[in-house]
């Protein structure tokens, strides 16, 4: 357990190092464009060069990189060129917003897909199974920007029930959460449902379930006591791995609804070439990815009695 945690930690640091070096190199050629974006398209070249000098972009690459790493470790994540704020202070409330969005989506998606997946899996090839399968495949194959457009057309323009943007300008609002959460749940639940169904169907065909049924146990007890736990191992792993998606896969939805989260901030930063904000965003994404992998590994061993850390 400790060994695997250490291994993960090392690999995480390695990934962070490689990604940060690559990003640094990538934006090195874009420095002058960054100055042009900060100072505007009609700014004179002398002004741009002065800006680079004044903001320390002219120091050697290696010096800047080491300074950045040193600052990053100490919680000083540098200044965002676009938003004129410390990167850490800027990202924190946005990460919180994305965490709220991700949590709502995760809970709803898991609840819906477990129920549907189990109902689908225990009666393979039934009409119910076919109906659920068709719905899951359909919703998963519609990209977020399309379903978001449909939802807005119906609930904002036509019925006028819900607000069309979710920027929380007057503080947090559940009403503004509805459309972005719905968009993401619609896109995600089909995939989870299919995973749960496949796993459930496989378990239901196994001999110990047949034994349990033949033994005369009530059907619901067979499902809950014997089938469910074993059927959940595979979907659990997939769902935890999808946590990563809920951080970096929400860009489209956040931008669409002007939801002020991590995804929109990263999108703005990428469009602007705001290198320190992109770096910090990438580091956070790596941490979340590796940690969710670790949780998934540990959880897998806890759920599956055949695998135990020695």
């Amino acid at each position: 357990m400790l060994a695997i945690a250490a291994r993960r930690l090392v690999s995480m640091l390695l990934i962070m190092f490689v990604i940060s070096v690559l990003l640094f190199l990538f934006f090195e050629g874009d420095k002058l464009n960054l100055a042009a974006r900060v100072l505007g398209p009609y700014s004179p070249m002398t002004g741009r060069l002065a800006w680079l000098e004044h903001n320390g972009y002219n120091r050697p690459l290696i010096t800047r990189y080491l300074a950045w790493i040193y600052g990053f470790m100490r919680g000083d994540w540098n200044q965002s060129a676009q938003f004129d704020a410390p990167v850490f202070d800027f990202l924190l409330p946005r990460l919180k917003n994305t965490a709220i969005l991700g949590a709502c989506v995760f809970v709803l998606t898991v609840a819906i897909s477990l129920v549907l997946g189990v109902f689908s899996g225990i009666a393979e090839a039934s009409k119910r199974d076919r109906a659920i399968t068709v719905i899951s495949v359909l919703t998963t194959s519609v990209p977020e920007f399309a379903s978001a457009t449909f939802l807005v057309a119906i609930f904002v323009y036509w019925l006028d029930w819900l607000p069309g943007s979710s920027s929380f300008n007057n503080g947090f609002s559940w009403r503004e959460m509805i459309l972005p959460v719905a968009t993401l749940v619609i896109y995600n639940f089909g995939y989870y449902t299919r995973m749960t169904r496949a796993s459930m169907a496989e378990v239901m065909n196994s001999q110990y379930i047949r034994t349990a049924v033949l033994k005369g146990l009530p059907y619901h007890q067979v499902i809950i006591r014997h089938a469910l736990r074993n059927a959940l191992i595979a979907p659990f792993t997939v769902m935890i791995l999808q946590l990563n998606y809920l951080l970096s896969g929400v860009v489209v939805t956040e931008v669409f609804f002007a939801y002020d989260g991590y995804g929109k901030a990263l999108y703005d930063a990428a469009m602007f070439g705001d290198v320190y904000l992109i770096l910090a965003g990438a580091m956070i994404a790596v941490v979340v990815a590796v940690v969710s992998q670790f949780i998934s590994d540990v959880g897998y061993t806890q759920l599956n009695p055949r695998i135990r850390f020695s």
Partner: peptide, 16 residues
Amino acid sequence: LGDNPSAVAAALASKQ
């Protein structure tokens, strides 16, 4: 409301 014009339009439609 960001760069996405459809968010802007939807915000005006819902009187935000």
